[in-house]
Amino acid sequence: MEQERKIIIESEHVSKVFDTPDGEHEVVHDLNFSARENEFLVLFGPGQCGKTTIINMIAGFEQTSEGKIMAEGEKVEKPDISRGVVFQSISLFPWMTTMGNVEYGPKIAGVKKKERRERAQKYIDLVGLQGFENSFPNQLSGGMRQRVGIARAYCNEPRVMLMDEPFGALDAQTRYLMQEELQRIWSTEKRTVIFVTNNIEEALYLADRIIVLTSCPATVKKEYVIDLPRPRDLVSEEFLALRKEITGILDSSQWEGET
């Protein structure tokens, strides 16, 4: 089944090296993976292991040092509207209202006002922010801001959604709520999602497939296909077993990384 779906994003032998004052620093090493159509793919890895860099390279914000990233058969060199990004830092345009933020993409593309308003409204409703269209980001709570961030990315109707620890800055309660929300949004608006996290519960709750990354430099450690029924039960036996297994892998991989 899995093999039949079209490959949308493919990372081929990707490495990334940064120049620091202390010399070269490799954050990503020979990374190979692919994401298929309408798949919810989670990149799961410990702490600061270049996960953001991977997302930035897929988005086209940063260039690979070696290897290449293919998006629907084309080499990624710069950002494109076919790949929407949800940032950990949320990064809304603070001088725009919710509506202004969400309709920014279509507006830039020259979509007529009436049409883009309708489209923006659809996604604002989808993320459950009706009534806050004219609020500025500094009037919204952290969770609401990230809803705007998701709606903003969705409103451009990209083929792929890249999510870089989108709930990392939120408190535990809000985070859990947002995971449920994202699960619901993804079920209504199917997209290929590449979701980065360091939270195993979040990964298991959302993923069709989890790619476990090693610590710095990041490379693929192991892959899991998660075929538990959705919405998932966080305390079911299978869930806990998987959680235990992946956490175990992570611990030893970190340990390996240190030697």
Partner: peptide, 25 residues
């Protein structure tokens, strides 16, 4: 904030649009 500029780029803004819709405000 470079992240905000990235956000506008991924939404399809070209350099001139980044200047007028992001940098100026």
């Amino acid at each position: 904030d470079p992240e905000i500029i990235n956000a506008s780029r991924m939404l399809g803004a070209k350099e001139r649009q980044i200047f007028t819709t992001i940098v100026i405000p």
